[in-house]
Structure formats: C-alpha cells, structure tokens
Amino acid sequence: MKLASTIMVIGSALLLGLFIYPLWHVELEAPQYPRGLGMNIHLDGIVGYTKHDIRNIDGLNHYIGMKTLPKKGDMWEFTVFPLVVGGMSVLGIIIGLFGFFKRSAYKWFMAWFVLMTVLGILGMIDFNAWMTDYGTNLDPNAIMKMTDDFGNPLSYKPPLFGSKDILNFTAVSYPSLGGILLGIGMALTFISYFVGKKLSKKSN
C-alpha cells in the first residue's frame, strides 16, 4: 500500500506545478509577427509571452470589436481556481498520507480523482464559455465586421486544443507545463487507485 500512497502523494503534489507554470497557452502567428504573439494562461491570470504581448493582442482585437483580455480582478476564476487547485492538492496529499496507515484508503483515491475530474471538466466548460463569449460577443460598432461563407458574423474564438486559422492569423492553443503536470498528476492518482486496490487484495 506504500507504493500506492506514494503515487497518490506525488500525483496530487504535481498539481502544485500550476502555481509556477501556466495551465495553457494561446499563440497567434501571422506574417508580420515573425516571432508570434502569445499568452500564457495561469491559474490566477493571463500573462503575455513578452511584456507587451497582451497590449498588442488587445490592440489587434479592437479592430474586430473583441473585448480586452481580462485582468486579474476582472474574473472570479482567477481568485477561485488557485483555491480549488491548492485545496485539492492538499486534500490529495492528505488522503495519500492516510494510505500509509489505512489499507482501504485507495477508495478515497478514486473519490478524489472523480471529484477532481468533475472540477476539471467544469473548469474546461467555464474556460470554453469564456472563449466563446470573447470570440463572438463583439462590439456592434466594430471597425471590421467580417462574415463567414454563409453570411453569419465570423467567430474569433480561439481553439480549445489545436490550431485554427482566424483571418490572417493562425491561433494555436495547447496545454503548457502546468497543465501537463496536472494531467500527469491526475493520471498518477488514477493509477494509485488500481495499485492500492491490487496491493490491498494481495495482502488480504
């Protein structure tokens, strides 16, 4: 059971990587931006690749009537997400440590994983909803009002995962190191359940 607990502790602790590394990144590529423009999405706010990327992205987006990118105080998520992730990480570590003393704790490992998955999905839904609003809820007086092939207003929503051509830009969106650590961490907690289950059966 020690092995399962160790995996559970490590897995939960990897969530703390999100306090150092960004969760996600979105990059904009265009001919006149040979180095690209980009933003790193951290738990507590959005940071440009370089000091002025956010300002430059906002400057471009104003042509098509997009809102400016949210600052730290503009969205409740930037306050709540760190608490949730921090709380879940600590909870996971505590549950993992329990496993050193209590053989049946592996069930809690699964409970933690299910809860974290639900929270993660809610987070993704929330993130996607924000991107949809950001990319489609445009200023009706925008300078450029573009339409798609069917005459509908063009959506500037960046992709959640992968790349998409939006006007002259290619928007690329992928998880960053923090997000990858989160994924690995969750996978480890999932594994710890099966390891714990197997070990507890064996010792029975």
Partner: peptide, 24 residues
C-alpha cells in the same frame, strides 16, 4: 492586413497567385 500581393484576372475575377510581403 494579410501582408500579401494577390494576382487576379480581369473579367473572370479569379485569384491566380498570392505571395507574402515582409511586412504589411
């Protein structure tokens, strides 16, 4: 905005070629 020169044909209005410019 898309930083390019586009060649097209008078009469058919069809785009025949496009080349990027550096920049804008």
């Amino acid at each position: 905005i898309s930083s390019e020169v586009v060649k097209w044909e008078l009469g058919t209005w069809e785009v025949k070629d496009r080349k990027p410019t550096y920049y804008s």
